[in-house]
């Protein structure tokens, strides 16, 4: 996202330096550009860092795997709470076992009905977020 402005800033500082040299007067020249404006461009694209398994490449790969794993772990924990919690709920609150919803036994309404759309909904949200993570990673790596 910030690739282009940075390059412009870098050429800008170089231009100033050349102008100073041409006028012949020894002037103070800022050799290092401000860190925020002109971070040095990587010599080769990040995909090569990944291919050559450099430290940087490994850091990027590690971050992708960690992001995706955190997302997976979040979904699994949520699932474990719902699925693991229901029998516990029935165990600790026995009156729920016989409760009714719309004339049907509550455990049946949940286990034979409502839980299925919930699973599909969870899967849909996961797919959306996982694809977003991958797009972000691709943007990061292919940034020029």
């Amino acid at each position: 996202m910030t690739g282009k402005p940075r390059r412009a800033a870098a050429t800008g500082t170089r231009g100033q330096g050349e102008g100073a040299a041409a006028s012949g007067k020894p002037r103070r020249v800022v050799v290092t550009s401000p860190r925020t404006a002109a971070a040095p461009r990587p010599r080769h694209p990040l995909t090569r860092e990944i291919d050559e398994q450099t430290r940087l490449g490994e850091v990027y790969m590690g971050s992708l795997v960690r992001t995706q794993f955190r997302l997976a772990l979040f979904v699994c924990s949520l699932l474990a709470c719902v699925v693991g919690g229901l029998p516990l709920l029935f165990l600790l609150a026995p009156e729920l076992r016989a409760a009714e919803l719309l004339g049907l036994p509550l455990p049946w309404v949940v286990l034979a009905g409502l839980i299925y759309p919930a699973l599909v909904g969870g899967a849909w949200l996961y797919v959306r977020q996982a694809e977003r993570n991958e797009r972000d990673f691709a943007d990061l790596v292919e940034r020029r």
Binding site: L71, A72, V75, C76, L79, V83, P105, P107, W108, L111, A112, I115, Y116, L119, G122, A123, Y126, V127, A130
Partner: peptide
Amino acid sequence: GADMLWLPVGWTGGYLVLLVLVSA
């Protein structure tokens, strides 16, 4: 009875676990 309702739930939910941990 009702305890066996978990069987189809698990056979469906297994795909959610498969989706997030394994599929891609």
